[in-house]
């Protein structure tokens, strides 16, 4: 009885478990390094108004400019490869509070004013359906 008990008592950690766990952790490390790259720095800003491309601008050139939306004028600022809404005539100011965006594939939008800023880079893949940062 004691013998059979012992035989059925499985230890939680035997050395093969440790080998497997170590392999899994190492494989995870390799996967993170090879697959989990941060989004690349965007090179260009495209401004869409009411879903129509209005203008594009390089992110390398610091500037502030205005865009006419369906509600009124939105103020945009490009600085050090990043872009933000400085002001917008919308009620809840979500676009302004979002702050800076700089990653390729990232999207900034003022929906009430129908202005969308799309960040693109050389390495950008354009058929991404949705990107969350």
């Amino acid at each position: 009885m004691v013998l059979s008990r012992k035989r059925w008592f499985v230890r939680f950690l035997k050395w093969p478990d440790l080998v497997m766990a170590a392999t899994a952790v190492m494989a995870l490390g390799v996967l993170y390094v090879s697959l989990w790259q941060p989004a690349g720095q965007a090179a260009e800003l495209q401004v869409l108004v009411d879903n129509e491309p209005l203008l594009s601008a390089p992110l390398s050139h610091n500037q502030t400019f205005s865009v006419e939306g369906t509600l009124g004028t939105s103020e945009l600022e490009i600085r050090d490869g990043k872009v933000r809404f400085v002001s917008s005539p919308c009620r809840n100011q979500v676009c302004v509070h979002h702050g800076w965006a700089s990653h390729s594939g990232e999207l900034l939008a003022c929906l009430p004013n129908r202005i969308a800023l799309v960040l693109e880079g050389e390495a950008a893949v354009n058929d991404i359906d949705a990107v969350n940062f």
Binding site: R7, V10, F12, K14, P16, D17, M20, A21
Partner: peptide, 14 residues
């Protein structure tokens, strides 16, 4: 399951 080189529950779960 029962050799010295057999993994336990953790190995199989992984």
């Amino acid at each position: 399951l029962q050799h010295a080189w057999s993994p336990g529950p953790l190995g199989y779960a992984l």
